[in-house]
């Protein structure tokens, strides 16, 4: 049972991030200082998002590896190097929050656009990228939903990411469809979310909300959690020329205090057999590719 507890979910961090005030797109000094304070919390390594900070490197590494493996070679710009493998790639990060993943993708060389429904989040993310002079070009953050972005810009991306977001949207099938429509032919999309299982109910709702009181009661809606089969169904039903090429569980190793995207079959077997269920019981991450034509 310990191993189950180790693999704790992170989705509740997502829902604690909205602020109460609205922001205009032209940022004034007062707003900046406010965002600076909020950003300090978002980006405080020991704060409430600390676990998300720890989860981010393995997720980014996973995206890196999957993109290098599955992105159609014709989409790779010649400017890519081992240090900046994403140089020249355009990436859309849907539901970017404070910009944690967007910044990491930008450090790998990508030109990143981050979308978030909350203008507070995008303003915080914009403020934070200004703190790192090496983010060049810095990610651009836009406070608009994916469907508006798709309509307004008609822009297609080499890579689209949306991590720990689907379980918070009203219509996941439509949401996924819009994300996949934003992917160029030959491109890659990566999604992560929480499976709807007894384990995830125990850990994210009973434990995190009611017992440990890490997050307010009502943060999660277990009914909205999505199983890998449902996710694959949404992908297939999107009408796009896409297919799921990789599904992995994400586990938290409590003794080593680090997250890990599960890799080998051996890992899956070890966890699956010892606990009586597979490694997709909690958080999982999925790679989708789009055909060329």
């Amino acid at each position: 049972m310990n191993r189950v507890l180790l693999r704790f979910t992170l989705s509740h961090w997502q829902s604690t991030r909205s602020l109460t005030t609205a922001a205009s797109s032209s940022i004034n000094a007062e707003e900046v200082s406010k965002f600076a304070a909020a950003s300090a919390e978002w980006w405080n390594p020991h704060g409430q998002f600390g676990m998300l900070h720890k989860m981010n490197p393995p997720r980014t590494k996973y995206i890196r590896d999957q993109v290098l493996k599955h992105l159609n070679p014709t989409l790779f710009p010649p400017s890519a190097t081992p240090a900046h493998p994403f140089k020249g790639l355009r990436i859309l990060d849907v539901g970017c929050g404070g910009g944690l993943l967007s910044e990491s993708l930008a450090r790998l060389g990508a030109t990143v656009t981050g979308l978030d429904a909350s203008p507070e989040n995008t303003a915080m993310a914009t403020y934070h990228v200004s703190l790192d002079p090496s983010l060049s070009p810095p990610p651009t953050f836009l406070a608009e939903p994916i469907e508006h972005h798709l309509q307004n810009t008609q822009q297609k991306y080499d890579v689209v990411t949306s991590l720990e977001v689907i379980e918070h949207v009203n219509n996941p099938a439509t949401f996924l469809k819009h994300c996949l429509q934003s992917v160029k032919p030959g491109g890659v999309a990566v999604f992560s979310t929480i499976n709807r299982t007894r384990t995830s109910w125990l850990l994210t709702i009973l434990a995190a909300e009611h017992v440990l009181k890490w997050v307010p009661v009502g943060t999660h809606d277990h009914a909205k959690y999505i199983t890998p089969e449902e996710l694959e169904g949404f992908v297939k039903g999107s009408g796009e020329n896409v297919q799921v090429v990789d599904v992995r569980g994400i586990a938290y190793r409590v003794l080593e205090n680090r997250w890990e995207v599960l890799g080998s079959e051996a890992d899956k077997k070890a966890l699956g057999n010892s606990l009586g269920f597979g490694d997709l019981e909690m958080n999982y991450i999925v790679t989708v590719t789009k055909g060329m034509e």
């Binding site: 020991h46 720890k54 981010n56 490197p57 980014t60 890196r64 790998l108 790192d132 680090r258």
Partner: peptide, 21 residues
């Protein structure tokens, strides 16, 4: 090197902690 490959800020404590541990 690992931090760079996962797009981390290499001055960040979470990256450095891997060295210390």
């Amino acid at each position: 090197e690992e931090g760079l490959q996962s797009g981390s800020d290499i001055g960040n404590i979470h990256t450095l902690q891997n060295y210390a541990s």
